[in-house]
């Protein structure tokens, strides 16, 4: 049992605990902060599994950009506390059943073959080699992803524009 193995299990436990805390918090700011912790842990797992470039991207994009966007949104909306039970029973039971069913199916799939139970040898994908690989084999997909991001930018702008117009002038919207 090497130091990397111990690190993996410790970080995996940290991620699972942080995510479990996040999905059960009533206060959404706390939920987002727990998720930032979880994404930092995932970035460390990426590093352990040999993807240092993706670990950096995970911190910059997920923990940095996406979660801060969520925080902005939660602070902007100033939500009232919802009445009633936190988890309504009519929703909690099917949610637990479906999640547990998913877990059963995925572990059954893993147990079908004896492959995959030996420890993997550690390896590191060099960021330069990864960049060359990405742009040699997937350049079209990278271009499509950039187009998708542009479309999302325009779409988010249009949605925001329409939202502003309906609040400024309710007569026009109806």
């Amino acid at each position: 049992m090497s130091i990397l193995t111990i690190l993996f299990y410790a970080i995996a436990l940290l991620i699972l605990a942080a995510t479990a805390m996040a999905v059960t918090r009533r206060n959404m700011v706390h939920a987002v902060l727990y998720l930032v912790l979880s994404f930092f842990g995932t970035a460390m797992l990426f590093y352990l599994l040999g993807a240092p470039f993706l670990a950096a991207l995970e911190i910059i994009i997920y923990a940095g950009a996406i979660m801060v966007l969520f925080l902005f949104m939660i602070m902007m909306l100033r939500l009232k506390k919802p009445p009633g039970m936190f988890f309504p029973a009519a929703q909690l039971l099917p949610a637990v059943l479906i999640s547990a069913g998913f877990l059963v199916v995925s572990t059954a799939l893993m147990g079908r073959t004896s492959a995959g139970w030996d420890a993997m040898a550690a390896a590191q994908a060099d960021p330069t080699a990864f960049g060359i690989y990405l742009f040699q084999n997937h350049w079209l997909a990278v271009e499509i992803a950039s187009m998708l991001l542009l479309v999302a930018l325009v779409g988010a702008y249009l949605l925001g524009l329409r939202a502003r117009r309906t609040t400024a002038d309710p007569e026009e919207a109806s």
Binding site: T5, T19, L48, F102, T107, G116, A119, M120
Partner: peptide, 15 residues
């Protein structure tokens, strides 16, 4: 040596 591949899959499916 790190962990078996299936342990990664288990963590991923729990998440």
């Amino acid at each position: 040596m790190i962990v078996p591949f299936n342990h990664v899959l288990i963590v991923s499916s729990l998440l």
